[in-house]
């Protein structure tokens, strides 16, 4: 069998795609399959998300698991009744259901205000780096290269401090 795409080389790859319930099958050669890769890209998160949307009827039979905060034991349902969370950890353990609510209530999900000096971790440093990057860009545009170099060095210094603390989060 020849490749269905180039009609030249022998087909050695069999691709089955199911999109919105429509099944299509193609037989391709190695090269054409590689060229078509982006379209065939298999993404695990997308696949899993698809599974969550797809209800085979099994989930209905099993009783829904009650999510509880692993620190204080509060369930989302209990929160729903009182409007009060049980402890700071609830924000983490009940995030799946709490986060959409917070976005709805607050119209945002990212804190942009004050960061406490001690409990804030490296967020203060990261905010500082962000600010310096803005300055750096401005200085470069104004061709103030000497000052820009100083700011760049300061950014490097802060970044290395972040690195020592174990990176990003």
């Amino acid at each position: 069998m020849l490749c269905e795409r180039c009609q030249e080389r022998p087909a050695s790859v069999h691709v089955t795609r199911i999109i919105n319930g429509n099944k299509t099958e193609v037989y391709l050669c190695q090269e054409c399959a590689r060229e078509m890769q982006p379209q065939l890209n298999f993404s695990i998160p997308k696949f899993l998300a698809g599974l969550l949307d797809y209800d085979p009827g099994l989930e209905l039979k099993a009783p829904p698991a009650i999510e509880r905060c692993r620190q204080c034991g509060l369930s989302y349902e209990e929160f729903h009744q009182t409007g009060r969370l049980g402890c700071p950890e609830c924000y983490h353990h009940l995030a799946a259901r709490l986060d959409p609510l917070i976005r709805r209530l607050q119209g945002s999900s990212q804190h942009r205000g004050k960061v406490p000096r001690r409990a804030g971790g490296n967020l203060r440093v990261r905010r500082e780096i962000e600010k310096l990057r803005g300055q750096l860009q401005q200085l470069v545009e104004q061709e103030e290269f000497e000052k820009a170099a100083q700011v760049r060095d300061r950014i490097r210094e802060l970044e290395s401090r972040l690195g020592e603390q174990g990176g990003g989060q």
Binding site: Y91, L105, Q106, H111, R112, P116, G120, L123
Partner: peptide, 29 residues
């Protein structure tokens, strides 16, 4: 006042959600 107390007490703070409060209508700042 907050700064002065923060030197003495560990406040519940999350890098994404900010200061954590009993009711989500106060979370953040």
């Amino acid at each position: 006042v907050d700064d002065a107390l923060e030197n003495e007490l560990d406040f519940a703070f999350d890098q994404e959600k900010g200061y954590l409060t009993a009711c989500p209508t106060n979370v953040g700042t």
